[in-house]
Nucleic acid binder design. Structure first.
Lengths: 168, 168
DNA sequence: TAGAACTTTCAAAAATAATTGAAAGTTTAT
DNA sequence: ATAAACTTTCAATTATTTTTGAAAGTTCTA
């Protein structure tokens, strides 16, 4: 199998995976292409490789930059902009988690906060049931947060890793 | 604020949150409704509460049952089926994680496996770069797996919790 | 300051995903 | 066996999301 084919298969699959996690197919594909590429690519390189429009590359590249997954590069003597992925996979994952936490966990917390603080009127038992639910959901989300902290430690703390291994 | 309003606000929000995580809005809404409800509900109860069609309720309810988030119930003397959510939030989260792992992480692992095992032809340096990427992604996914194990422990092992607290 | 090289924007089009609803299927009671 | 009560299915419709591409905007060079 030629490298080019392998790369393209990877790009395709990463695209569909992203898609099922709520990340636009093109964004995931661009990311995969840059990850798999040794050197920085221009907008046109990307357009040609994955056959998508200029606008699409532009918009999704911006998003990847926002997520800190990709950075702009300049090549000496070239006017065009080039792009390269952050090749540290663990840092990459951290950024994705961070970003989704910010975008999608925060709204839940806000909602729960609001519904917990409001004085709710109704049948006592039912109100209690509802409020218990709100509290439990909040606890759960806090656990998720804690878990991502643990992961950070796990990632680069040898000592910590050992302890977990021992206890598990 | 009346309990009914609070519930409905929760149902709405849970719907949009689900939506942004790649879960159909109606499925998330039905789940929220059942979570917030003291007692089991019938298909018609759900149709009326969130104003969606019978078919929609049926299909999404089946999916919720597949995910082990909801169970069928029978009421004495009633012919209809009733549905109730699993009210243990942590178990619920576990099921969701499990389900997504199965559906979306497995395909990635299969892909990486395949691309790692194939003999890839091309410029040596580039091939190496590509293969390193594949290996790193695999490691990363394995870490995710490990993390979900740790979470299980964290959930119900007091001793473990303590240790983590100490080391963190 | 003109114009070439390049980037950004965004309304419209295309692709994808979710929902409807009525008909077909099933089960239960008499 | 029939009919009523209920559930399931799925082709067609509707809603949502993504992508396109051409025009507008920007920056650089001479």
């Amino acid at each position: 199998m030629k490298l080019q084919e392998a790369k393209m298969e990877f790009v395709q699959s990463w695209g569909s995976i992203g898609s099922s996690w709520g990340i636009p197919r093109s964004m995931a594909q661009i990311h995969a292409l840059l990850l798999a590429s040794n050197e920085a690519l221009s907008t046109e390189d990307v357009m040609d490789s994955i056959k998508i429009s200029r606008g699409n590359v532009n918009i999704n590249m911006r998003e990847l930059i926002n997520w800190n997954l990709v950075a702009k590069q300049n090549k000496l003597g070239e006017r065009k902009e080039f792009f390269s992925a952050n090749h540290d996979i663990m840092a990459m994952a951290q950024n994705i988690v961070q970003e989704r936490k910010k975008r999608e966990l925060q709204p839940v917390l806000d909602l729960l906060e609001k519904l917990k603080s409001d004085k709710i009127q109704g049948n006592k038992e039912e109100v209690e049931h509802f409020q218990t639910l709100m509290t439990e959901l909040e606890d759960f989300i806090k656990q998720l947060d804690q878990l991502s902290e643990i992961w950070l430690k796990l990632k680069d703390n040898f000592f910590f890793k050992k302890i977990i291994k021992t206890v598990s």
